[in-house]
Computed example of a mutant assay.
Amino acid sequence: MLRALLIGNGETPDAAFLKSLAARADLILAADGGADRALAGGLTPDVIIGDLDSVSPAAKKRVSPENLIFVDNQNNTDLEKALDWLVKRGCKACTLTGFSGGRWDFTLGNFLSVYPYAQKMDLTFAGPGWNFYPVQKNRRFACRPNARVSLIPLKNCTGVTLKGLKYPLKNARLKLGGTGLTLSNITTGKTFGVEMKSGFLFVYAED
Rank of each mutant, 00 (worst) to 15 (best):
L68A: 08
A142K: 15
G41I: 12
D78M: 12
L108T: 08
V135H: 10
D32R: 14
T77V: 13
L43C: 06
Q74E: 13
P65D: 07
V63M: 05
T191N: 14
K120Y: 02
R24A: 14
K166L: 11
L112E: 02
A93D: 15
G50C: 06
I69L: 12
P57V: 04
A25D: 06
N138K: 13
C143Y: 07
M196F: 09
V135T: 05
A142G: 15
G180N: 09
R148H: 00
T12L: 14
V63Q: 06
D72C: 03
S56M: 05
W130I: 13
N73G: 06
P116E: 09
W130V: 14
G129M: 00
G98L: 07
F202T: 02
N75M: 13
D122G: 02
D51S: 09
K61C: 09
D105G: 12
I152V: 14
L181D: 01
G164A: 12
T107R: 07
L52K: 06
K190R: 14
L181E: 02
F99H: 08
I69C: 04
Y167T: 10
R139I: 04
G34R: 08
L21T: 03
T158C: 11
G189R: 06
T97Q: 11
E206M: 09
K88D: 12
G164W: 11
P13N: 07
A16Q: 15
D105N: 13
G178F: 01
K197I: 01
D32P: 11
F202I: 11
L27T: 00
D207C: 12
K163I: 11
N75D: 15
K61Y: 01
L165Y: 07
C143P: 06
G33K: 04
R3D: 08
S64L: 11
R148W: 00
P57H: 03
L151D: 07
G127E: 15
T187H: 08
Y133K: 08
Q136G: 00
S184E: 06
V71N: 08
S64Y: 00
K190P: 06
A15W: 01
Q119W: 05
A147S: 14
N171K: 12
F99Q: 07
F141R: 07
D36T: 08
S198P: 00
P65E: 05
T161E: 03
V63E: 08
K137R: 15
L43S: 02
R37E: 04
N146A: 15
D14H: 13
N185Q: 09
S100Y: 03
G180M: 02
V63K: 03
T77N: 14
W85Y: 15
L151H: 10
F192H: 05
L154H: 11
K61P: 01
K163G: 13
Q74T: 11
G8W: 01
G34I: 04
L79T: 08
C143V: 12
A35Q: 03
D46R: 12
L39P: 00
D46S: 15
T97E: 09
T12Y: 09
A59R: 09
F132A: 15
E11P: 01
A4P: 02
T187L: 09
L83R: 12
S150H: 06
G127Q: 13
A16G: 14
V63P: 11
S20C: 03
V160E: 07
W104M: 13
Q136E: 04
T182I: 11
C94T: 14
R144W: 04
V71K: 13
A93V: 07
K60A: 09
G102A: 08
V55K: 10
N75R: 15
D84W: 03
L5S: 03
K88Q: 12
L21P: 06
